[in-house]
Amino acid sequence: MTAPTSARTASKTASSELPATAAKSPKLNRRQREGWAAALFLAPDVIGLTIFIGLPMVLSFVLSLFQVSGFGQYTFIGFANYQRIFADPVFYSSLRTTLIYVVCLVPGGFVASLLLALLVRQKLPGVGFFRTAYFLPFSISIVVVALIWRFMLDDQVGVVNQVLGWVGIPPQSWLGNPQLALGTAVVVTIWVQMGYYMVILLGGLQDIPTEFYEAARIDGASAWANFRHITWPLLKPTSFFVLLTSTVAALTGAFDMIYVLTKGGPANSTNVLIFYIYQQAFQYGEYGYAAAIGTFLVLIMLACSTAIFVTTRGGRFSYGD
């Protein structure tokens, strides 16, 4: 019984001191208070991005102006590393491979994810299980996924060739044939990522008011008409997000998959830019040149992001679109 009394006393004391404390502190108007609140909310992200993204980018650009021996010797060479890029045939071949990879992966992954999202949006028994199952590959380490696929795609004993053999298709060297390796890497990457983008697109689909579909049903609209005139336009903001993030992921996130599956081979057929940067830095010891290619890749990424922003008007959509 003493505790409430003490609490009341403490509360009374605190409230009696409050005006004095408040009088001492500088008064902030509403705009200033909101400014401070916004700064505090943004601070963790801004600090993290500055330390882990901004600063390394600046340092990488500075490094690209040097020739680095790998044993602590730095020689300033200006933009010579950038000039070297344009005279490097492997860079062009790698750039071409990267563009093919992105052009196949991003639309392919988007279509696969959208089809899955439309599928698991249906109210069917056990749909929760399928949603989980489709998402599961994304929750596993890329290295583990790639290793498992490497075993499944083995020329001699891989399950893929065995299954194809049952229908009379001769065994293929999925990772050893330059004409197949990049396509194989794209398919495996889509398989890994489609569950993740499915969840995002599913969220977008579920945000579409059901009244639109009910009205369309009363008007006798077909399933295709529903998709074309209701789902697709109202899903555009989500689609924009998926396309943007998957393009960035395709440009910069392919390293671990390619490293485990093919190590850039056969015959450079899967040597995407991010892997070529690794080769230059950590296999050839050309840190300055690798940093220059890295800067170039950032420019490509900025160009792609800008193109997506421009064509979609900055991701702002109206229902009239």
Partner: peptide, 18 residues
């Protein structure tokens, strides 16, 4: 040096697998 290694590597890969 890496340039020589890479030239030979490309020759082997392009002949053997491409």
């Amino acid at each position: 040096p890496p340039v020589i290694y890479k030239a030979i590597s490309d020759a082997i890969q392009n002949t053997m697998l491409a």
